[in-house]
Amino acid sequence: MIDALPGRDTAMAPHHYTLHAATPAGPAGPPPWQQLPVAAEGTGRDPGTAARLPGLA
């Protein structure tokens, strides 16, 4: 991944993830995503999260 970032020697992952069961219709930005029900959220470091959600494991 770092090779794809010229002039950079580090990368950082988000500290918080939100998973939605669907995607917004039309152009996406924060408001459409914020209106959708949240299926799961957290740090992304819990391996059990994907196992609990069908289609992600």
Rank of each mutant, 00 (worst) to 15 (best):
M1D: 04
M1P: 14
M1W: 14
D3C: 06
A4K: 06
L5M: 12
P6Q: 15
P6N: 12
P6V: 02
R8C: 14
D9Y: 15
D9T: 12
D9N: 14
D9E: 11
A11I: 09
M12A: 07
M12Q: 04
A13G: 01
Y17I: 13
T18Q: 05
T18F: 07
L19M: 14
H20R: 09
A21P: 09
A22P: 02
A22V: 00
T23V: 03
T23S: 02
A25L: 12
A25H: 12
A25E: 15
P27V: 01
A28K: 01
A28E: 07
A28V: 02
P30H: 08
P30M: 14
P32Y: 04
P32F: 13
W33M: 13
Q34D: 10
Q34V: 00
Q35L: 11
L36E: 03
L36G: 12
L36R: 13
V38A: 12
A40H: 07
A40S: 01
E41D: 14
G42N: 03
T43L: 06
G44L: 06
D46G: 10
P47A: 14
P47L: 10
P47V: 11
P47I: 06
T49D: 02
T49N: 00
A51N: 02
A51T: 08
R52E: 10
P54Q: 05
L56M: 14
L56R: 06
